[in-house]
Design a binder for these strands. Structure first.
Lengths: 136, 136
DNA sequence: ATAAACTCTATAATAACTATAGAGTCAATC
DNA sequence: GATTGACTCTATAGTTATTATAGAGTTTAT
C-alpha cells in the first residue's frame, strides 16, 4: 500500500491531478490510513496509467470514464468503444485541417512584413485590419 | 451611433463577447446613452473586426492587446509584431505535429479492434492498458 | 399602461487541471 | 517532550475565452 505522493511518482501524475480524478470518479475512493491518508494498491497504479495513456491520446475525462465502465463489464459489445474512437479520430483530423489552413494564413501574413519597418508601414497590421478571410 | 446589439450583428461577435472585450481592455469604454446603453461608432466596428480577424488566427487576447497598442503608436518599429507572429506560427506548427502523431496512434489503436467483439477481446482496451507510448 | 425586445451588472459555468491557504499527520532529532 | 521537515488533508480560487444566467432597468410599439 502506497500513499498519494508515491503513486504520483510512480505514475507521473501530480498529486492534485490524482485527487481531481477521484473527485471526478475516474478512480474510486480508496481506503484511508488511521491519519486519513489515501492508500493505494497495484490495481490503482494500473488504472491511473490507463487514464494517463488515454489522456496522452487527448481523450476527455468523460470519454475515459466511459471506457473504464466498459472495461468493468467485459461481456459487453465493444461497438461503443469503436464509435467513440472513430468520433475522436474525426475530431483530431478536423482540428489538423483547421490548423493547417491557419498556418498558411499566418505564413502569408508574416511574409507581408520584413523587419525594420515602422508600424505604419507594417503589412501585418495593415492586413489584419482588412476584411477577415471568409472561413474564419 | 449604434447600440451593442447592432454592433453584434454587424461584426458577428456576441453581445457578451463585446462586453468581455471591453472588460479586458481590448476595446475602450465608450460613451453611454441617457439610459446607460453603450453607443458605438464606425471606428469601434473596425476595431472589433480587427480583433475578430486576429481571433480567427488563434491569437490570444493578450497578443491582440499588444498588436492594438502597436497599432496606436505608428512610429514604433514593427519587430515586435514580427516576433510575435513568428512565435505564434511556431506554436501552431508544433501543435500540428503533435496532433499528426496523435492521429497515427489513434488509427493504429482503432485498427486493433473490429466490431462485434466483446469488450474482453477488445484490442483497443487491451492496448490502452499497456504501457503508454514514450512521447506522451 | 403594458408588453416585447433590448440593455445593464454581476456571477457562475465550461475543461482539466494548477496553485494556494490553513490545518492535520508522521518520523526523526534535540 | 518539543520541534522540525516532509508529507497529507480539505476547500477554494485561478487559468482561457467565452457562454449562460438572474434580476433589474430602458426603449419602443401598441
Amino acid at each position: 500500500m502506497i500513499k498519494i505522493g508515491e503513486l504520483s511518482k510512480v505514475t507521473g501524475c501530480s498529486v492534485q491531478t490524482i485527487r481531481h480524478y477521484e473527485k471526478e470518479h475516474l478512480i474510486a475512493s480508496v481506503e484511508r490510513s488511521e491519519g486519513n491518508f489515501r492508500l493505494y494498491d497495484e490495481a490503482a497504479v494500473e488504472q491511473l496509467l490507463f487514464i494517463k495513456h488515454c489522456r496522452s491520446l487527448d481523450l476527455s475525462l468523460p470519454e475515459i470514464r466511459q471506457l473504464l465502465a466498459l472495461n468493468r463489464s467485459p461481456g459487453a459489445q465493444c461497438d461503443d468503444v469503436n464509435r467513440m474512437m472513430d468520433r475522436h479520430i474525426e475530431q483530431v483530423e478536423a482540428r489538423i485541417q483547421e490548423l493547417t489552413k491557419l498556418n498558411e494564413q499566418l505564413r502569408m501574413l508574416r511574409r507581408s512584413c520584413s523587419n525594420r519597418r515602422t508600424v505604419e508601414q507594417c503589412g501585418i497590421l495593415r492586413n489584419l485590419s482588412a476584411t477577415p478571410v471568409s472561413s474564419g
